[in-house]
C-alpha cells in the first residue's frame, strides 16, 4: 500500500464517519448517541491526517526521506528488509526521521467500513436479531433493584399515563416486588415481532455501547387487532397483566393493550 493509497483510505474512512454523523443520523443505528461528538472529532482528525499525508507525498517529501536515510547511515542499510526491521524497531524513538512508506496489506481492510457505510448503510437491528437470539432469556440482573426505581412510572403522577421504556417495563415486571405497575395506565413504544403461534411482541433493543452488545427487551402484547407486520413501529397504551405467584417465575410478561397506534417516524431504534 503506497502513501497515496494510505492517505486516500484515511480520507474515505473519516468521510464515512462524518457522513454517518453530521448530515445524517445513521450512526444511531450502530452506536449510542453519546458517541456522536467523538465520531465527528475522530472523522475530522482522520480526514485531516489523510489530506496531510497526500499533500506531503505530492510535494515529494518521501523522495527526500529515502536517500537521506541511506546517506546518513549507509552501513546499516544493506538490505531493504533489514532497513524495514530497523525502522520498525526504532519506531518510538523521539529523535529520528522514519520513513514508513509502506503499510501492510491488511490496511486495505480499512476500506470495508467505508464500503459498509456508503454501499450497504446497514439498518438498525430488528426482528431478525430478536428471533435469532430467542428474545430475553429471563429476568434482568438484580443489581438495580435495591435503590428503588427511578423510571417513568415513578415520575408520572398518580392517574397519569406513564410513558415507559420497554426496558423499564421489563425491569419492573420482573423485579418490582411492590407491584406498583398494577392497575396503572402505561404507554410503550417499540417495533413488532410476531411469532409463529399468532401472538406478537413489542420489542426494543437495549445497548451499552454499540449494536454488538444489544440486548433484547420484549413484552407480549395482548389485544383484539390483527397481528402487525414485523419491524413496524407501534405505540401501545394499556396495563400490565399482573401475574399470580412469584414475578420471577413468569416466563413472558404480558401487556393488555386497549389501543395501539402505528408510529410513522420511528425514534432512535435503541433505548
Amino acid at each position: 500500500m503506497n502513501r497515496i493509497a494510505q492517505g486516500l483510505t484515511l480520507v474515505l474512512l473519516g468521510a464515512a464517519a462524518l457522513t454517518a454523523t453530521v448530515p445524517t443520523d445513521l450512526y444511531l443505528n450502530w452506536v449510542k448517541a453519546g458517541f456522536g461528538p467523538f465520531l465527528i472529532a475522530a472523522g475530522a482528525v482522520t480526514v485531516l491526517l489523510g489530506v496531510l499525508v497526500v499533500v506531503a507525498e505530492l510535494r515529494g517529501e518521501s523522495q527526500d526521506t529515502a536517500p537521506e536515510h541511506r546517506t546518513s547511515a549507509p552501513e546499516h542499510h544493506t538490505s531493504a528488509r533489514d532497513h524495514d526491521r530497523a525502522v520498525a524497531a526504532e519506531y518510538g524513538d523521539g529523535g529520528h526521521g522514519h520513513d514508513h512508506s509502506g503499510a501492510p496489506g491488511v490496511a486495505w481492510l480499512l476500506l470495508l467500513p467505508v464500503a459498509a457505510v456508503f454501499v450497504l448503510t446497514p439498518p438498525a437491528l430488528g426482528s431478525y436479531t430478536v428471533e435469532s437470539t430467542g428474545g430475553s432469556a429471563g429476568p434482568p440482573p438484580e443489581e438495580t433493584v435495591s435503590g428503588g426505581f427511578e423510571d417513568a412510572l415513578a415520575e408520572a403522577g398518580p392517574g397519569e399515563t406513564a410513558q415507559m421504556a420497554v426496558q423499564e417495563f421489563v425491569m419492573r415486571a420482573w423485579t418490582d416486588e411492590d407491584r406498583q405497575m398494577a392497575g396503572r395506565e402505561i404507554e410503550l413504544t417499540g417495533f413488532a415481532v410476531p411469532d409463529e403461534e399468532g401472538s406478537w411482541y413489542l420489542v426494543r433493543l437495549q445497548m451499552a455501547c454499540c449494536a454488538a452488545d444489544a440486548v433484547v427487551n420484549r413484552v407480549e402484547v395482548v389485544d383484539d387487532g390483527p397481528v402487525p407486520e414485523a419491524d413496524t413501529w407501534w405505540t401501545v397504551r394499556g396495563t400490565w397483566d399482573e401475574p399470580e405467584g412469584e414475578l420471577t417465575d413468569v416466563s413472558e410478561h404480558r401487556f393488555l393493550a386497549q389501543e395501539r397506534e402505528e408510529v410513522a417516524d420511528p425514534p432512535d431504534p435503541y433505548e
Partner: peptide, 23 residues
C-alpha cells in the same frame, strides 16, 4: 436479514472503536 444484521454489527464495532483508535 442475516447479512444486514451482520453488516450492522460489523459497522457498529468498527465505528465505536474508531474514536478510541484515533485518539
Amino acid at each position: 436479514q442475516a447479512f444486514l444484521a451482520w453488516a450492522t454489527v460489523f459497522t457498529a464495532i468498527a465505528f465505536q472503536a474508531l474514536p478510541f483508535l484515533v485518539f
